[in-house]
Nucleic acid binder design. Structure first.
Lengths: 340, 340
DNA sequence: TTGAAAGCGCTACCAT
DNA sequence: ATGGTAGCGCTTTCAA
């Protein structure tokens, strides 16, 4: 059996309550006793049992992350790997651990929510929803369960959320394309309903106002292969765009491949820019212009906010926190350089 | 306050013990009472508190994954994303959840180990060690803590481990290159000490026996950029290899980029093959030949074994479980096709 | 078949 | 300043 406070108490000839006090750094404990207890703890290599603590304090020290499996697993989306990585890092600084669950389908996801929060396994949740998830959010709200949404809460104004301003980000990158002299800028997004995509399309359209009459919005499935196929069709057309803003780096990779196969020069014949600024951007010949979302910043803000909610601390700032994006310009969009 | 078994008991007019029995599916409970209790549970939306259960049963229902941050975060290594993804999936089928921690440095990693297992936060650990980690493994053994190593335990014969046979895998892929007619096959690995790399180099060398006198082993840092630079040097040399087996897809990507920049045709002038078979392989022009590690298989075996250890069930098979690899041949190594 | 009660290891309150 | 003790919500033994 493992060492408990009772064992320590017996060996140090004090009460178990005193051991607990020493552990919590209670100032009222006499120095001599304190040292004696600490010595025994050290010797016995005592560590408090988090399970007992969790029960007693009604806090598990765990933050849950439930992600809906994207197309082809989370493996191929560096966003999630980044997210988890930064989350763990951020949490460890606050004495929290991360509990990850992946939901393969809608039904299962609800079950996980139930299991995770009704059983009080975790103290709070980080939500990442690619689409509006009304029922789940309402459920959490009804339970009064602490959670922060990474993304756009849409009509849920009361939900705490951390997000980029994807409308502005898309507007900026589209403007960048226009400034580079592209005349027919298109946008390659995901299917309608994916909030990130919808937001970025809105930004794209805003940028075009008064500058380009025709809006060229295309909807592709996720992944570089789908976008490669779609891009091939698009670029074969006689009225093809001369620049494409793409939803993410993977899809942009597909576009770049399609362009290369069709003999189009980047950035001269086709400008490309995308979102996420993953390591992939350095891998595309000459580099891919991409919007950096500052995932670390998103995560940091989200955890900060969540821990405040959990601790019931007053929240003075806005419920929606916006983390600025930055445009990392690489050669895939630098038409002006090429034409010099 | 939330609903407890006592509340249910009161409402159903039974004892709290009976409620517990109903929950555990105890057959001795009379049907009528059973139904009454279940009805109240349903109505009150009762869920047992996992914290109390964990304390009582001495089981948390959590499996820990501690990963040492690789170069540049885990984000850029799809292996970890895959690992986590499959782990979560596999665990959820066994009523376990995954607790992820990342250790940035050696010292911190030991601290996490302590926190995670001495405090009994998790019931078992999955270890992923890129290098021999003697002290940590000995510690776990001394504590009698359940864990399974994903990788090569080296001299720790008593450790339960799940791994590919990297020696054989490398031998096979090297043989494949030789069969394709390459005469100077090289190996681009990581620095010595990284067990996966060491194993694969050993396999590469075994394949060359009697077939190619000169062993061309190169050591690169991780990442496509480092390997691109190194590959550029290697390929500029007059005695350059005509084929490279590379430690992973990312590094292979760097090699492919270097080759392209030097005007070398793949697979005619340079054959490339690597390990991991990630989505990146489809992205490299024509496709990259790569060894598929069957991560899902690795994870499945590891979890299966770990849960047996945790439940103290007898383990009849070998302590070391080998999951077979398969070679996914794509055009980057198909020299014979090109020369037809 | 059911209920009463002990106890998992801890924190915190109330005594002294 | 210290000890005794209640109790977090649950499972399980023991009695009835």
């Amino acid at each position: 059996m493992r060492v408990t406070q009772r064992d320590i108490a017996r060996l140090a000839e004090v009460s178990q309550a005193t051991v607990s006090r020493v552990l919590s750094g209670d100032v009222r404990v006499e120095h001599e006793i304190r040292d004696r207890v600490l010595a025994v703890m050290q010797q016995k290599n005592y560590q408090p049992d988090v399970r007992a603590r969790a029960l007693r304090n009604q806090k598990s020290g765990l933050i849950g992350l439930v992600i809906k499996r994207p197309q082809g697993g989370i493996a191929n989306d560096p966003f999630y790997a980044n997210l988890i990585s930064y989350l763990v890092e951020e949490l460890s600084g606050r004495d929290y651990h991360l509990c990850v669950d992946v939901a393969s389908d809608e039904f299962y996801q609800v079950a996980i929510y139930d299991e995770l929060l009704r059983t009080r396994r975790v103290d709070g949740l980080i939500l990442v929803e690619s689409e509006a998830a009304d029922d789940r959010i309402r459920r959490l709200q009804a339970e009064g369960f602490p959670f922060v949404l990474l993304g756009n809460p849409l009509h849920f104004a009361e939900v705490h959320s951390v997000d980029n301003d994807n409308v502005i980000a898309a507007e900026e990158v589209t403007n960048h394309m226009i400034e580079q002299g592209y005349k027919r800028v298109g946008f390659l997004g995901a299917r309608a309903g994916i909030t990130v995509s919808d937001d970025r399309i809105a930004g794209y359209q805003r940028a075009l106002r008064g500058k380009q009459a025709e809006h060229l919005v295309y909807h592709s499935a996720f992944g570089s292969e789908s976008s490669r196929r779609l891009a091939t069709d698009i670029l074969k057309s006689s009225e093809r765009p001369d620049a494409l803003v793409v939803l993410d780096d993977f899809m942009a990779f597909g576009v770049a491949t399609a362009a290369r196969d069709l003999g189009l020069q980047i950035p001269r014949d086709l400008g490309i820019a995308s979102f996420n600024d993953t390591s992939l951007c350095e891998m595309i010949g000459g580099g891919l212009t991409s919007v950096n979302l500052n995932i670390q910043g998103l995560v940091s803000k989200a955890v900060h906010r969540l821990s405040k909610i959990i601790d019931d601390k007053p929240i003075l700032t806005d419920r929606r926190i916006i983390v600025p994006t930055t445009l990392t310009v690489r050669s895939s969009s630098l038409r002006s350089e090429v034409l010099k």
